[in-house]
Design a protein around this nucleic acid. Structure first.
Lengths: 134, 134
DNA sequence: TTGCGTGCAAAGGTTTTGCATGGCA
DNA sequence: TGCCATGCAAAACCTTTGCACGCAA
C-alpha cells in the first residue's frame, strides 16, 4: 500500500497554484516561483505531473507558444457538470453554468452524433474586461 | 518585396497534409513521411511553422502527450463561420454548421459576457464511430 | 526504521539557429 | 544572377531519469 508524505516542496507548489488560481503558469514559471523555498526543478516537474493526474490542476495550451500552462482546478466548482470559457488574453477561466448550452450539447449528441466531453473541452475567446480594452 | 519559391520539400509537406487531411501528425511524423523525398528535419520544422502561420494547417494539443499535432485546414470549409468538433480517439475533425449552437454563442456573449472565438475553440469529445466501439 | 520524496547531475528528446550551398525565378 | 530555401550540424531548450540521501510517518 502506498503512503503519501506531506513535504515542503509539495506544499509550496500547491499553495502557489491555489493562491494564484485565476492565472496559469508554465512549469518553469512554477520552478521560479517556488525556488526560494528550495524546491528543485525535477521535483516541480514530478509534482506538476502528479497534480495533473490527480486533477488538482489542469493543463491548457497557449495559442501562441509551444508550451503548456497549468492552472489550479478549483474543486469547489462542479466541473463535471458545467462548461469552461477561457480568455485567450488574460487567461481567466470562467466556470459557466448554462442550461441553454447543455441543451445544445444534447442536440449535438443526437443530431450531429458527437458526444461532447465537457471536462476536456475548453471554449476560448475573450472576457468582457479584455474585449473592452480594445 | 518578398518572393516565394515553389520547392520540392514544400510541395512534399503540403501534399502530405492534404492527402491525409482527416488525420493529424506530429512534426516528427511529417519528417518521417517526407524523408524519402529528401527533405530535412529543420526544413520540415520551418515549413510547418510557416504553414501554421499562413493558416494552411492547424495545430491541436493531444490529451495525453506533451506534443502538438498538426492537421490540414481545408480551406473549402468556411471555418470562420462554423464550429469544430474533434474526436479525442481517432482525431477526426468535424466541421459543424449548427444554428442552435450559434444562438447559444450569442446568448453567452450577451448573458455571460464572453465572446467566443469560433476559430480558436475546438470542442473535444467522441465521434459516433469511436463511441460505439466501447 | 521504512521507504517515499527530493536534489543534483546526466541523459534524452525536441526544436531552433548558423552557415555554406543549392536551386527557383 | 539574386536571393530564398534547404541541409547539415551544433546549440539551445525542455523534460525525464538514475541515484544517493534526507526526512515524514
Amino acid at each position: 500500500m502506498k503512503r503519501e508524505y506531506k513535504t515542503g516542496p509539495k506544499k509550496a507548489v500547491i499553495d502557489f497554484f491555489r493562491e494564484n488560481s485565476e492565472r496559469h503558469f508554465s512549469v518553469l514559471d512554477v520552478v521560479d516561483a517556488v525556488s526560494q523555498s528550495g524546491a528543485g526543478k525535477s521535483t516541480v516537474y514530478r509534482l506538476i505531473n502528479n497534480l495533473l493526474e490527480s486533477g488538482v490542476i489542469r493543463r491548457f495550451e497557449t495559442p501562441d507558444s509551444q508550451k503548456f500552462v497549468y492552472q489550479y482546478a478549483d474543486k469547489s466548482h462542479e466541473c463535471e457538470t458545467h462548461y469552461h470559457l477561457k480568455c485567450v488574453k488574460c487567461g481567466r477561466l470562467i466556470h459557466m453554468e448554462c442550461v441553454h448550452f447543455r441543451e445544445v450539447c444534447n442536440h449535438i449528441e443526437k443530431e450531429h452524433s458527437f458526444i461532447i466531453g465537457s471536462k476536456q473541452s475548453v471554449i476560448f475567446g475573450e472576457c468582457v474586461a479584455c474585449s473592452s480594452e480594445n
